[in-house]
Design a protein around this nucleic acid. Structure first.
Lengths: 226, 226
DNA sequence: TTCATACATTGAACACGTTCAATACGATAA
DNA sequence: TTATCGTATTGAACGTGTTCAATGTATGAA
């Protein structure tokens, strides 16, 4: 949608779009998503109210544009950060912490991203068909992290593991968004503990004894995610 | 809040409140939460718009009242349904299926319950202090299910297990709410598979070998839920 | 009966996200 | 230069959830 619009758009239009986008993010960062009104955004960008809707389908679509841009611009950074790290635990931690660092200045409005999350039909849901490309790239990071890691993954769960790790990451982000503890200490603790658990589970999952359990988990994942 | 109001209220007022409540639920069931307007509700109840707000703090508060009422009225039913069932798997399935049956006619608007779920500060969140009493009763059901079940639970996880099972139940409900498959077949599958997995995990967790893993899980739960 | 008071009810008004018909603009063709 | 046409921009208007000052109403005291 965004791209299609870009093709036909004047440089001038692209400029207006950018002004609206950045005004919105500034205000979101300052006041949060809900307290910021579309009238605020339009005014700061120097356009009429309707102008904002010419470039963005809705207020939430602006946040989605941010989500998309963040995902795209993070690709290279993630690859570089993974260089030299061999332990899977470090590689996963690396991805998650990078993401939180990027999100940190935008913590006040990112909750809007999860507003319609469970509704997979909603275009703005992280699980929707519309956000599929964004999601795939995030999952790809997990895939890379696993492949270059030090832990042997049973072949049967290997296909779904990146998706599960992405889910895990989304959970951490969600927790972090609403973590009111000073300096988000609880999130730090959560990451430590849950990463340890994930690694333990992955190690254990290789035991021949665990085959039936692995299978049960996989079937469940299939049911949930198809 | 509701109770405090009840104490001082005239029978006439209680009648008005009930009319508003039932009109709202009727409309929610028919059209869903969002498409139903407070003006619709007021009109159907035969009061002015402001009247609805005299009895309910917000549109979502009406849904919360429903949630509360459902939880209260389900207590006896759950106890009776658990009678005679010995296998933990059956006991858990029983509770979950009862809940889904109760929710089924209201499926169209229950998504409103999860709208602010992750924000534990939001009074309407199932995780908030305000909804603590409702939550506790639901968790108590799980406690009863476990206690009367056929599976020996390690003492260290026994305290937190009911809470975890409640979380599990909430997850199932959330999945069911957005399950578009015919007759919600996917939810049925999910319940079967996940219950099997839960039981397997509980069995395994008793093995002495699993002590460190149990501990790791417990610490994580503590971090998340404090 | 009359008044006082607390409870109950009203509907206009507000701010919001969103829509849309009308208009301005700017590049291209004549 | 002028006319044309698709793009860009405008702001009034709509329907929404919510607020609130004003008004009505019943009940108990005098």
């Amino acid at each position: 949608m965004t791209t299609a619009m870009k093709n036909r758009s004047t440089p001038r239009a692209e400029d207006t779009r950018q002004r609206i986008y950045e005004s919105a993010l500034d205000l979101f960062r300052e006041k949060g998503f809900e307290p910021t009104t579309m009238r605020d955004i339009a005014q700061k960008a120097g356009v009429a109210l309707g102008g904002a809707y010419y470039y963005f389908a809705s207020k939430e679509a602006i946040v989605l544009a941010f989500y998309q841009e963040m995902q795209e611009s993070s690709h290279q950074t993630v690859l570089e950060a993974l260089e030299g790290r061999k332990k899977l635990k470090d590689r996963l931690r690396c991805i998650i912490e990078l993401r939180l660092e990027t999100l940190a200045p935008n913590r006040k409005f990112c909750d809007a991203l999860f507003r319609h999350a469970p509704d997979t039909q909603d275009p703005l849901s992280p699980f929707s068909a519309e956000t599929h490309p964004i999601r795939e790239r995030a999952i790809e990071h997990m895939s890379i992290a696993v492949d270059g890691g030090d832990i042997k993954i049973p072949s049967d769960i290997k296909v779904r593991l990146p998706y599960l790790l992405w889910l895990f990451q989304m959970g951490v982000i969600l927790f972090w968004l609403y973590d009111r503890s000073p300096r988000q200490q609880r999130t730090a603790k959560l990451i430590d503990q849950s990463l340890g658990l994930v690694i333990s589970l992955l190690r254990i999952s290789s035991l021949p004894l665990m085959k039936p359990l692995r299978k049960a988990v996989l079937e469940l994942v299939e049911t949930v995610s198809v």
